[in-house]
Amino acid sequence: MMTAMFGAVESGVIYAIMALGVYLSFRVLDFPDLTVDGSFVTGGAVASIMIVNGYDPFIATIFALFAGFLAGCMTGLLHTKGGINPLLSGILMMIALYSINLRIMGKPNVPLLAEETVITKIESWFASDWSIFLFMLIVTLMIKVLSDLFLKTEVGLSLRAVGDNEGMVRSFSANTGWMKVLGLGLSNALVAFSGALVAQYNGFSDVGMGIGMIVIGLASVIIGEAVIGNSSIARATLAVVIGAVLYRIIVTLALRIEFLDTGDMKLITAIIVIIALIMPKVLDKQKAAARKKKRLVQLNGEGGGPVA
């Protein structure tokens, strides 16, 4: 049980980078970007094929980041220059990336078990059970802090405003089209970076490993916001990181139920997201009803006797 939990937290920290990417597109830009399902694999594909061909795993992971950036920019261009609806541009890019990822890898699955990866390198530097977790935690928190800082720069502010009120930013001379392209590029760069790390962590990269990734990202964002809140940027990004870890823990717990097996994972994910989306509304309604009851009791108490 403990080892399973530790594994959940460990991989949760790596998936948190992907969730931060989803936060950038979904929350900051208000752009539901399905490219994620494809760019996550692109990251894994680029990194693993470079590692297999003898490149340094750290350099391979950085290249994965750039590949994701390009994929995100393409989606942005389809939407802004091509005038295609946001959802559809993401779906088109996701489908296109499926074939591109196959081309990059040359086959549906590239094993990395015999290769030197970022993970094996870290393990060889710091021989401890905690080394992977701590290293990934530092990397993830660094990305979180960098995102926080970026979103406070002049460019970052107008990027946020694009998701908030596009007409307003345009009237203050920001090129909203390029802002979206940049935002989607950065978002998918993080997603691909996470994909590259996940592939090395799992010891293989698979063309199907991105299926449902956007939903996992959303689940992390929504769970995090429900638990931590999103009153400021720093808090919202922290919520995303914690949400990603919580998601992994919930899935690990769910899989311990005998009746469920690993094939049910996507269903569990979907149910978690549905619950996380509906619960706040149900709670609000209950709170409102409780308030109403209290107010009625107050009124009746002063007026003496119930009102007919």
Binding site: T153, V155, G156
Partner: peptide, 12 residues
Amino acid sequence: NRTKKRSLGFGV
């Protein structure tokens, strides 16, 4: 920033 190019400096 209406009359200036947006940079990577802090807005506030």
